[in-house]
Design a protein around this nucleic acid. Structure first.
Lengths: 146, 146
DNA sequence: GGACCAAGCGAGACTGAGTATCATCTCGAC
DNA sequence: GTCGAGATGATACTCAGTCTCGCTTGGTCC
């Protein structure tokens, strides 16, 4: 079967990038994550499960994966940064503030709303970022209040 | 007449916060800015125009203003942070990537789209952030290409 | 299979944003 | 004018992310 890490490695190859052992390792570390994760977490994981993997390499690989669209960076409400593994080309994320799980959000009329904004303001909108934070159904059931 | 800095100082007073000289100074520095600005820029301005104003104070005041809704923090595509002065309670920003000028974006169907997202995913969406980047009408006219 | 070399790697120094600490100062109430 | 809570400024600190540099390695060409 194809694991999530496979998707990463195959995409790296397909892009004509070198498929090195450290890159495989980072792909596996990310694949083992559910939901979003920070660079710091990944570095910590690497320290435990793949000693010898350098900090700079984790950042470099994360950057490569981001360029390849395998991973997307998002901005937490706290001001920090996190990453999520993702498939589709352009989309948005809905992150559970309780368990950290992130889902890709399809466009339910958002594009139209954005076009309307562009039309009214006269701006030519080049890019945008939308991030949603909330609680996933499971966490809502699990802990009524928290 | 009422300057932008006045709005800041009056809001600070109205909130029951102390209206100190450094806070006034920061308010003036912000009022003198057009569009978005970074904390680093503000610190640099302070160094020039208001020597003696501490770095920590700029950050603290920026935090206070953010809490009071006078200023909002946004995340640049580069990963950095910037601030914009703003009035309305909840809204989004459209930042010109050329001149830096930011306009507040009203809700042209965005809320409805977000509700639809929440309904479909089952998430209870607590907060979101939307930032738009593009070129303002003036910059489009001014420099056809750049 | 072996040689070659550009790309990638690891270690660690560096940078810069933002925070914490603490002694001193000042706003504003009385 | 006095006083105390809260703000300030200087400075040390933390931590994410970047840069540098000598070494290693993946992939290609023979």
């Amino acid at each position: 079967m194809h694991t999530a890490a496979d998707t990463f490695t195959r995409t790296v190859e397909a892009a004509g990038e070198r498929l090195t052992a450290p890159r495989r390792a980072v792909a596996e570390l990310i694949a083992a994550k559910r939901g979003h994760f920070t660079a710091a977490e990944l570095v910590a994981d690497a320290g435990q499960r793949r000693p010898g993997l350098g900090r700079a390499t984790v950042f470099r690989t994360l950057e490569l994966f981001t360029q390849l669209g395998l991973v997307e960076r998002l901005d937490l409400p706290t001001g920090g940064h996190a990453y999520v593994a993702c498939q589709t080309a352009h989309h948005h994320h809905l992150v559970c503030s309780s368990c950290g799980r992130a889902v890709d959000v399809e466009d339910h009329g958002l594009a139209a709303a954005l076009e309307e904004v562009a039309r009214r303001t006269g701006y030519r909108v080049d890019s945008h970022r939308l991030e949603l934070f909330g609680r996933c159904p499971a966490c809502q059931r699990a802990g009524g209040t928290a």
